[in-house]
Simulated assay, not measured.
Amino acid sequence: MTTEQLYLDDAYLREATARVLAADAQGVVLDRTLFYARSGGQPGDAGLLRWDGGEAAVAEAVKGEAGAVRHTLAEGAALPPVGAEVALELDWNRRHRHMRMHTTLHLLCSVLPGIYATGNQIGAEKSRLDFDLPEPPAKEWFTEKLAALVAADHPVGTGWITEAELDANPQMVRTLSVQPPRGAGRIRLVRIGPEAAPIDLQPCGGTHVCSTGEIGRVEVSRLESKGRQNRRIHIVLGD
């Protein structure tokens, strides 16, 4: 059972309809969804499912087997009937903060060219990115660099390449801890900046804002040592 992932083409969809393929204690599988399934350091989306005669809160969307997305429900929630049409409603405020955060992490990569990320975690309130960086600049330097990139309001877009094209350009992968999913024959890219001269271009299946100006105020709150060379950069957003 494969779930069509609507957010790959439009991360701004807040509502949609879908058909129930399966429903059990492990969650609800739909034929399509706008809920991002947890992966790559980004949490799964939350929200609501509504159908004729009932509704249920989605606690988090997670990956299932063979391309399925499982919508795990709040404890005690009713299950929709298999075959029923359901209306999907996204917890937009939470998702949008994840989008702003995720794009900010890509901007952090852009100000450290040639430096690989070794781990990451995205959250609605705070996020962090780890780098193989023995002597990082001060946190104020990062904050100033990010503020300039946000103020420039660079466009953010997506595209696709083949797995063979990625193999020919391995430097496009900026993270050592998370590798792009393979097996579908193509890899999704997220580009920040103009297509001819991007500021950042790397494989990513996550959700992002459409321009850096939408991120708003961002601050590197602290730097943390996580080993001899590993440095953790913590970021927070304004409202």
Rank of each mutant, 00 (worst) to 15 (best):
T103V: 10
T104K: 04
T104M: 04
T104R: 04
T104P: 01
T104E: 02
L105N: 00
L105I: 04
L105V: 04
L105C: 13
H106Y: 07
H106T: 03
H106W: 11
L107V: 06
L107F: 03
L107T: 05
L108P: 00
L108Q: 02
L108E: 02
L108D: 03
C109V: 00
C109N: 14
C109A: 08
S110M: 10
S110P: 07
S110V: 08
S110F: 08
V111H: 03
V111A: 02
L112C: 11
L112Q: 07
L112T: 08
P113R: 06
P113D: 03
P113H: 03
G114Q: 10
G114C: 11
I115V: 15
I115F: 05
Y116L: 14
Y116A: 14
Y116R: 14
Y116Q: 13
Y116F: 11
A117I: 01
A117P: 07
A117H: 05
A117D: 01
A117R: 03
T118M: 06
T118E: 13
T118D: 04
T118P: 07
G119Q: 09
G119V: 01
N120E: 13
N120L: 15
N120G: 11
Q121M: 12
Q121G: 12
Q121A: 13
Q121D: 02
I122T: 01
I122A: 02
I122Q: 04
G123Q: 05
G123S: 04
G123N: 05
G123L: 05
A124D: 14
A124C: 01
A124V: 13
A124L: 01
A124F: 05
A124E: 15
E125G: 01
E125N: 12
E125S: 11
E125H: 12
K126S: 15
K126G: 09
S127H: 03
S127T: 07
S127D: 02
S127R: 03
R128T: 01
L129H: 09
L129T: 00
L129I: 15
D130C: 07
D130K: 12
D130I: 10
F131E: 06
F131N: 04
F131V: 13
D132Q: 13
D132W: 13
D132N: 15
D132L: 14
D132Y: 11
P134V: 13
E135Y: 05
E135M: 08
E135G: 00
E135F: 06
E135C: 02
E135W: 03
P136K: 09
P136A: 14
P136G: 11
